[in-house]
Simulated scan of single mutants.
Amino acid sequence: MTAVIIIFIIHWYGSLFFQTFFHHRYASHAMFTMSRTWEKIFHILSWIFQGSSYLSPYTYGVMHRHHHAYADTENDPHSPQFDSNFFTMMWRTRNVYNDIDHDQVDVLAKFKKGVPSWRSWDNFAGNNAVRLVWVIFYIFLYWLFDAPLWTYFVFIPLQAMMSPLHGVIINWFSHKLGYRNYDVGDTSTNLMPIDWLMWGECLHNNHHKFGGRPNFAVKKWEFDPMYPCIWVMNKLNIIQFKKGKLDTDYM
């Protein structure tokens, strides 16, 4: 049982690490730069850690830019203002994601500009057969560690839908609960001042105020655990901060 919990925790934090670092802060907001080689490395690492719920960084980036441009309006891909519960919001987000991913909608140039695109890789990683192989792999791991039967029906579905699960936590609950530092014209909130659960993503109201800022913490008592990781990667020259983006005052 201990091994199963460890597997789940590694998947939770590993998947979300790449979603917030690569998909959100890089692909969507271009908070820093990186080489094309590193882009491809992070595409592959995202697939390894997101597994069956792999998200295309291109599609995510385009969709997320729509969220910021149209927050809490009918054009927002995911707003609790227009859905009765988070299941219907997740389904609507899925439909918007698929429309963008399959080029079934016209996307304005400003939403696509600079978003990393490796579509041949996305087509492989997002293939339903590949997603199924990942689910089988999760089941094999549970069998290998002699997991209790109930964990197959609880943890496996959560792992199979890991990325959408992360998305709904932020896009539903961080527009419903928590506190606000800024009146930004939408319902975004901060769920917690020290966000260990979601790698800083729950500092959502701060992010909606300062969309291009790599450190989501603003107040002295807030802490964004992703920012020190980004800071280290900048020091290692894996990424490069843009001028004016290094928020060392809030380390």
Rank of each mutant, 00 (worst) to 15 (best):
T20E: 06
F155D: 00
R36F: 05
S56C: 12
R213E: 05
Q104Y: 11
P80G: 04
T88N: 11
F140S: 11
W150H: 10
H24T: 08
Y26T: 02
E39W: 08
L165R: 03
W199G: 00
F216D: 00
M192P: 00
L158K: 04
F124W: 15
A69F: 14
W143G: 03
L144M: 14
D83H: 15
F21I: 05
I230R: 00
F8R: 01
F223H: 04
I136Q: 08
I239A: 03
S163R: 01
N171R: 02
S15G: 15
R131E: 06
N206L: 04
N215I: 02
K235Q: 14
M34Y: 09
N75M: 14
G185F: 06
S35Y: 08
N234L: 07
W143P: 00
M198G: 01
M34T: 07
P116V: 10
V218T: 07
H166L: 08
N123A: 15
Y152Q: 04
G114C: 10
K110F: 13
S35Q: 11
R180K: 15
L55C: 07
I100M: 01
C202Q: 05
V130N: 01
I7L: 15
W134K: 02
P57Y: 09
N181K: 07
L132C: 12
L108T: 11
H24R: 06
F241N: 05
G200C: 04
K176G: 02
I48V: 15
H204T: 09
L203N: 00
V133C: 14
K113W: 14
T88Y: 11
P77R: 02
I169Q: 04
P77L: 11
I41M: 10
Q104S: 14
T37L: 13
T187C: 10
N205V: 08
M233Y: 05
M226S: 09
Q240T: 15
R213H: 11
K113G: 05
I6Y: 12
W91C: 03
A129Y: 13
H102M: 12
L197S: 07
